[in-house]
């Protein structure tokens, strides 16, 4: 248990665990983040109509 990156008490493998998962972290957050950003961009395109009208 203590050797889990987010676990208690303090451990020395925390940084290693995070570093090991950095590419996976970037990939997975981009996987969901990019489509979401596209949706928000399209939403803001529509929003301009409110202030133009």
């Amino acid at each position: 248990m203590p050797d889990h990156p987010d676990a208690s008490p303090p451990d020395t493998t925390a940084a290693t665990g995070t570093t090991r998962h950095t590419p996976l972290m970037v990939l997975t957050w981009a996987w969901v983040g990019l489509p979401f950003a596209y949706g928000v961009y399209e939403l803001f395109q529509k929003l301009t109509q409110l202030f133009a009208g």
């Binding site: 050797d3 889990h4 990156p5 987010d6 493998t13 290693t16 665990g17 995070t18 090991r20 998962h21 996976l24 972290m25 997975t28 957050w29 996987w31 969901v32 489509p35 979401f36």
Partner: peptide
């Protein structure tokens, strides 16, 4: 069951991939 080095910040994107 997560291995000892698994980061909990990998779980929100897993959830988001379903909810989105």
């Amino acid at each position: 069951v997560a291995p000892p080095t698994w980061s909990r910040w990998l779980i929100p994107p897993a959830a988001l991939s379903v909810h989105l």
